[in-house]
Structures are given as structure tokens and as C-alpha cells.
């Protein structure tokens, strides 16, 4: 479990980090923030970078700001920073509750929001939540800044829209309004705690009907993605006792068995069943929460 040798360079600004990534463009280069995705990957031999660019000390990337419409998380904001910020449960309860179940206490003291998303582990908890929340990923690279909707950021297992010399600078998450309900529920692996299936939901109601719905899953597929068939079943529907179950039945509509992950813990067939069950729970909990404050 000793990492292979690599060169380590510490960036003193985002601009310098991008310059360094460009300078070492021909080498196998990785970005280091909290290190809680990168170091385990290096130690297990899955990655063997020649150069590691450390952005963990960049103040311009750390911290979060709760605005009237959106909450912006700097890329190197740790999970613990999120949980220690007043008002975060009011503004973005789904993000706060998700961060609370990532890893363990020590991991949350070190792991970062941007690192989580850039690593794009299919079983990580945060990706589904940012997709369901319609968050925007702010990216900076040699060609300047650009913004990507979270739903287009995740491409495949450990693969994102990030270019080779780009890095995430911030994640902008729309706040949850009074007429909205938001949640994340998961079936966690009893050994690792990662999501075997996790479903995030954000629903907006208009009286007794559903005006807008966004659902996303991680753990189920090779990357976090929206559950559009189930969303379609919700939008415009009148809220009844069996709505969550009916709409959740559509979670696997159009999903081929090969699209669902299959491993030693959960077969793809069982994953499909879990996906429907956890979609139902997410919808129901989001509905129950409309207009209700969520506390830490």
C-alpha cells in the first residue's frame, strides 16, 4: 500500500494550477485536493500518476456561500465545512443530508465536494443529488471558465466532462423553495457504506399537483443519471396516496438489464428492484417535506 513514486507540485492559485496542468499535459497528471479519492486509487494501483498537482491550499476554492437563490460550494470545501455552516440544511437540505452520510467522521474532515464529483465514483452519494438539484458545475481551464449542468457532467464510470487541463472551481446548487421538497435516500453497502442504489428527488408542487420533478440515481448505473420516465410520470400528476409507487414503477422503464451495474453484492436484476423501491421512498419523502423545514 505504498504509493508509486510521483512528482508533487503545489499550486498557489487556480491560474497556476491550470498552467501546471498544461505544463505537464504530456505526463499522467492528477489533481489532489482532499486526497480521499486520489490516494486510495493510487495506493490500490488503479492510478499511477507521474505528477500530482496539489490545489488543497487554494483559499479561492474553499468555503461555501448561501445566497438567496443558490448555494455555491467552492471545489475544495470539505464535507465537514458544509455540515458546520449555519443555514445549509434550510437552503439545500438534500445536499446537507447527503454529505452527512458520506464516508465517516475523519473522511468528512478531509474529503472535498469538488474531489467527489471529479472522481465520479458511480456508487458515491453526491452525484445523484447534484443532478437532481439541477446544479451547475463551474469549470476553469486554459480556455477560461465554463459552466456545465450536473446532468451533463457525468459521462461514465470515473469519467466526466472535465478536460485534461481543467478543474472544478465551484458547484452551484439551487436552493430548495417553500413549494419544493428534496431528499436523498440510499441502500448502502453493509461493508463499504457506498450506495448500492441511491435516489435523489426534488419536487415542486402547485396546490395538490406536481409542477416539476427531478429524480436521479447513483449506484445503479455506471454514472449518476436522471430517471426521466419516472419524472414524466410525476409532472402534472395530482398527489394521491399511491402516486409515489406508481411513478416509481417507471424508474426502470426503458432501462436495459446491461445498463444496471452487476457485482458480487447486488445483481443487476435485484438492482432494478432496489431502484424502484428507493425511487418510491425518495418521491414520498420529498412530497412529505414540501413546506416542512429539515433540521440537522
Amino acid at each position: 500500500m505504498f504509493p508509486n513514486k510521483f512528482d508533487y507540485v503545489r499550486a498557489t492559485s487556480v491560474a497556476e494550477a491550470i498552467d501546471l496542468l498544461e505544463e505537464y499535459a504530456d505526463a499522467d497528471t492528477e489533481i489532489l485536493a482532499g486526497g480521499h479519492s486520489l490516494l486510495p486509487t493510487i495506493k490500490s494501483g488503479l492510478a499511477s500518476p507521474e505528477v500530482v498537482v496539489d490545489i488543497s491550499g487554494l483559499d479561492e476554492l474553499a468555503g461555501l456561500e448561501i445566497g438567496p437563490e443558490t448555494t455555491t460550494f467552492g471545489a475544495t470545501t470539505t464535507y465537514a465545512d458544509v455540515l458546520h455552516t449555519d443555514g445549509v440544511y434550510d437552503a439545500v437540505p438534500d445536499v446537507a443530508e447527503t454529505v452527512e452520510v458520506i464516508g465517516d467522521r475523519q473522511v468528512r474532515n478531509a474529503g472535498t465536494m469538488g474531489g467527489n464529483l471529479a472522481h465520479a465514483d458511480p456508487a458515491s452519494d453526491l452525484p445523484a443529488v447534484v443532478v437532481a438539484a439541477d446544479a451547475t458545475i463551474q469549470i476553469q481551464g486554459p480556455d477560461g471558465e465554463r459552466a456545465v449542468p450536473a446532468s451533463e457532467f457525468f459521462i461514465a464510470m470515473y469519467t466526466t466532462d472535465l478536460g485534461p487541463s481543467e478543474l472544478i472551481t465551484a458547484i452551484e446548487v439551487p436552493n430548495v423553495g417553500d413549494d419544493e421538497g428534496a431528499t436523498y435516500v440510499k441502500k448502502k453497502s453493509p461493508s463499504s457504506g457506498y450506495a448500492m442504489v441511491g435516489v435523489a428527488a426534488r419536487l415542486r408542487t402547485d396546490g395538490d399537483s406536481i409542477e416539476a420533478a427531478r429524480l436521479a440515481a447513483n449506484g445503479a448505473f455506471d454514472h449518476a443519471q436522471r430517471l426521466e420516465a419516472a419524472e414524466d410520470a410525476l409532472v402534472g400528476a395530482t398527489v394521491t396516496d399511491d402516486l409515489a409507487a406508481t411513478a416509481a414503477g417507471a424508474a426502470t422503464d426503458g432501462v436495459e438489464e446491461w445498463e444496471l451495474m452487476d457485482d458480487i453484492q447486488v445483481s443487476s436484476d435485484f438492482r432494478g428492484q432496489l431502484l424502484e423501491v428507493y425511487t418510491e421512498r425518495a418521491i414520498q419523502q420529498a412530497l412529505d417535506r414540501v413546506g416542512v423545514a429539515v433540521s440537522a
Binding site: 486526497g35 496539489d54 467522521r105 475523519q106 473522511v107 478531509a110
Partner: peptide, 13 residues
């Protein structure tokens, strides 16, 4: 002041 796992932190960090 914060508890972390020293096996998952580089000394240089």
C-alpha cells in the same frame, strides 16, 4: 484540530 486518517494524507500536504 480535526481528526483525519494519516494513511490517506501525504506528509507534504
Amino acid at each position: 484540530g480535526e481528526a483525519i486518517k494519516a494513511c490517506t494524507t501525504l506528509a507534504v500536504q
